[in-house]
Design a protein around this nucleic acid. Structure first.
Length: 743
DNA sequence: GTGCGACGATTTTAG
DNA sequence: ATCGTCGCAC
């Protein structure tokens, strides 16, 4: 039925012009450049609903891809409430979840065993370690973590060992050999790591024309969230699934690309526009922050080059000034934050409306201590998540073995846990026998039983009997009963219960929680796996919350990275110092700086009403006291929007002057129209830790000439100073011997 | 197998 | 400072 021009479709009513244009864009490749807080998810979900309701697209013709499980379930919920119906037929999921689903369906074509297992990061590293040991490679020279990184990076770029050349580099040659060895081993074990899920599902569609046809026909409408975070394989995967006739609709923000180190290719946004001839829509109206906060964010991000270009604006002009605090040390910084949080709470706001954001996890400590002392409840994000905990993975390994005796990864994990007298030499013989016979450890164990020394044979037989008994004992039970029995009968629960320290108690609680998780588990619709198998895959693919959600209202502590996508009325960005933020490794690397700046932009745009920034003049790091200059990002804020908080007397000196830092001209010359936040005054360090010569001061050295003091490290006789000399470059000097003279 | 001291590293992290 | 790993003694 035709609609009147004046009566917009109900789905479009609550949208602004830009959002409406994007949602109702023609059925063609579309790129939505969505700024922070501009209603990105809204556009994505409304587009999905629009396609179904207005364009008559069948729900099963739609594929919506996200990066996190959280985003996927949020999207599902919102689409369902827009459509007023369950969205079971829609494929909504993470890249990995969808890749997993494809591989389960097409395991034959992918060359996988039907019951392939997924390796998480930790499993993968164990496997790499084992391989290195077998190859008699020194772990100092061949760091497992780095070998793992190499393998994953190549996979993220879609490269198999056969695509790689050593270019005459022996290290590289060895890495390629290890990658090849690793992959052969995975194939032999029937296991798939996270990167492999993506790469293999890409390859199977690419190499099987009938699959490519099928999915291209099925998924005409692919929606992608956080497009700036896609890696090469994910991008190729999208290209493949959409084909020439598909109409992908992707949403992203190049200014919030902060995962290059994880394989993300922000260039994919430009490539998408080019490869698909996509129409571009920009969402620039922000509904989250005050004008002041957006002004600061815009001004900071403006200094990055090669942006797609957009500028956030809001109808909510003005707002509280951004408060900047120069703390004496990290304790003073924490005290400052505590005081402001008290203020925040006194005005009746929930604690959860305040977040402390830092660059690295280690920085949480001083705030945790201060919050603890002040008896303010808090929650720290990050760290191990539920299904990643060792005791949970042990229990899952037992469960896996009951399903599949040939699961060598699980076998190795629990064969001697709790300890049952199966030692290194027995295991070595098992591995050797398995390798020689091209069979699993389980089969090797059976074969070796008669020839092993009596003690080892008894122990091993005990393990074999245990697994068999578990397997036959749990058949027919409900999932959570199966889990309970395995935890109980394997001896895991008792093992942790008799541990001395309190950590044992926590482990027992976690094991009990696993039973609860199993009880509450419902498999995905259209998931054809048996329930237990489905639960095991779920555990790896969706590793759960960091901690059981804290019921109490509490202050949020997290890294800037994990704050992406969130918003808080009050935000503290702490540790704004050169070497911390931007990080040590980015400070002098022009390649890495833009990403740090984007991270700063992400941080600023988390704040809705109030933003506090702080840095410390001295800070204990790795047991040493360090003096670092205020972050360059502070100097990039418009002075008019910043108010310096100065609780005590101060001594005048410029906050930060980039022109003196690198000895060269500033890359971004601040024109007269751009005011820069130069603090009018600053405190000197207090007695006892007085700095010999101020940071940023000019000094002369008898040999190196003139330069600028960058920072100090240590105290007393061993105090060192880093100086950027005009002619000699940067040097670390022992202050006591350096004969520096203030100019 | 467990406990202890030495040693080394220490950005960010979803699935 | 602190945490995890490793080798060695019991």
């Amino acid at each position: 039925m035709p609609r009147l021009m004046t009566a917009p479709h109900p789905l479009l009513v609550a949208l602004n012009d830009a959002q409406r244009a994007a949602v109702s864009a023609p059925l063609a490749p579309t790129l939505v450049l969505a700024g922070a807080g501009s209603g990105k998810t809204r556009v994505l979900t409304h587009r999905a609903a629009w396609l179904i309701e207005e364009q008559g697209v069948a729900p099963q013709g739609l594929l919506a891809v996200t990066f996190t499980n959280k985003a996927a379930s949020e999207m599902r919920g919102r689409i369902e409430s827009l459509l007023h119906m369950p969205s079971g037929a829609l494929w909504i999921g993470t890249f990995h979840g969808i890749a997993h689903r494809l591989l389960r369906r097409h395991w034959r074509e992918s060359g996988l065993p039907q019951h392939f297992q997924i390796l998480d990061d930790d499993d993968q590293q164990r496997l790499v370690r084992k391989l290195l040991k077998e190859q008699n490679l020194d772990e100092q020279r061949w760091v497992p973590r780095e070998v793992q990184g190499f393998i994953n990076r190549e996979k993220d770029e879609g490269r198999r060992p056969k695509h790689l050349q050593d270019r005459g580099d022996p290290t590289r040659r060895e890495l390629i050999r290890l990658y090849d060895l690793y992959q052969r081993r995975c194939d032999q074990l029937g296991v798939v790591d996270f990167a492999e899920l993506l790469l293999r599902s890409y390859e199977v569609i690419r190499d099987q024309p009938q699959l490519a046809d099928f999915y291209r026909h099925r998924f005409r409408h692919v929606l992608v969230d956080e497009f700036q975070d896609t890696n090469s394989v994910q991008y190729d995967w999208i290209k493949l699934v959409c084909g020439k006739s598909g109409t992908p609709f992707v949403v992203g923000d190049d200014d919030q690309s902060i995962y290059r180190w994880r394989g993300a290719r922000v260039e994919n946004m430009q490539h998408f526009r080019r490869d698909f001839g996509a129409t571009v829509f920009k969402l620039e109206q922000n509904y989250r922050s005050t004008g002041v906060i957006l002004g600061a964010a815009n001004e900071v991000i403006r200094r990055n080059e090669d942006r797609l270009g957009k500028e956030l604006w809001t109808e909510a002009a003005g707002g509280e000034p951004i408060r900047l605090y120069a703390a004496f040390n990290e304790r003073d910084e924490a005290d400052f934050v505590i005081e402001r949080i008290r203020e925040h709470a006194r005005s009746g706001r929930p604690l959860a409306a305040a977040a402390v954001l830092y660059r690295s996890n280690a920085q949480s400590r001083s705030f945790e201590e201060a919050l603890m002392a002040a008896r303010i409840p808090y929650r720290v994000y990050g760290g191990l998540r539920f299904f990643e905990r060792a005791e949970i993975k042990d229990a899952l390994a037992y469960l896996r073995l009951t399903q599949n005796r040939s699961d060598d990864v699980s076998f190795e994990r629990v064969v001697n846990l709790p300890t049952r007298g199966i030692g290194q030499s027995t295991l070595d013989r098992l591995r050797e026998t398995a390798r020689a016979g091209g069979t699993s450890l389980w089969n090797a164990a059976q074969a070796l039983l008669p020839v092993l020394p009596a003690r080892a044979a008894t122990a091993l037989n005990g393990f074999i009997g245990l697994i068999d008994r578990l397997a036959s004992g749990i058949g027919g039970l409900e999932l959570h009963e199966q889990v309970r029995r395995v935890i109980e009968d394997s001896g895991l629960r008792e093992h942790h219960a008799k541990e001395k320290d309190t950590r044992g108690e926590a482990r027992v609680e976690n094991l009990d929680e696993l039973v609860n998780a199993a009880e509450g588990f419902t498999p995905e619709v259209e998931d054809e796996l048996p329930l237990l198998a489905s639960f095991l895959a779920h555990a790896t693919l969706e590793s759960g919350e960091t901690q059981a959600a804290e019921g109490r209202d509490c202050v949020q502590l997290m890294t800037l990275h994990s704050a992406k996508g969130l918003e808080f009325p009050t935000v503290f960005m702490v540790g704004m110092e050169e070497g911390l933020f931007p990080s040590e490794r980015s400070v002098f690397d022009p390649e890495k700086l833009p990403e740090e700046r984007r991270l700063c932009y992400v941080g600023i745009t988390r704040a809705m009403q109030r933003l506090y920034l702080s840095h410390a003049e001295s800070r204990r790091i790795y047991g040493r006291t360090e003096y670092r200059a205020p972050s360059r990002f502070l100097a990039e804020l418009p002075a008019a929007l910043v108010e310096e908080v100065r609780p005590r007397l101060s001594v005048s000196r410029p906050l930060y002057d980039p022109s003196t830092r690198h000895g060269g001209p500033r890359r971004h010359t601040a024109g007269p129209e751009v005011a820069t936040a130069v603090a009018p005054a600053r405190r000197q360090a207090a007695k006892g830790e007085e700095l010999p010569i101020r940071l940023g001061a000019r000094v002369r050295h008898p040999k190196f000439g003139e330069g600028v003091v960058l920072r100090y490290e240590g105290n007393g006789d061993t105090q060192q100073v880093q100086v950027n000399f005009e002619n000699a470059g940067q040097k670390w000097l022992m202050y006591a011997y350096a004969k520096l003279e203030a100019v």
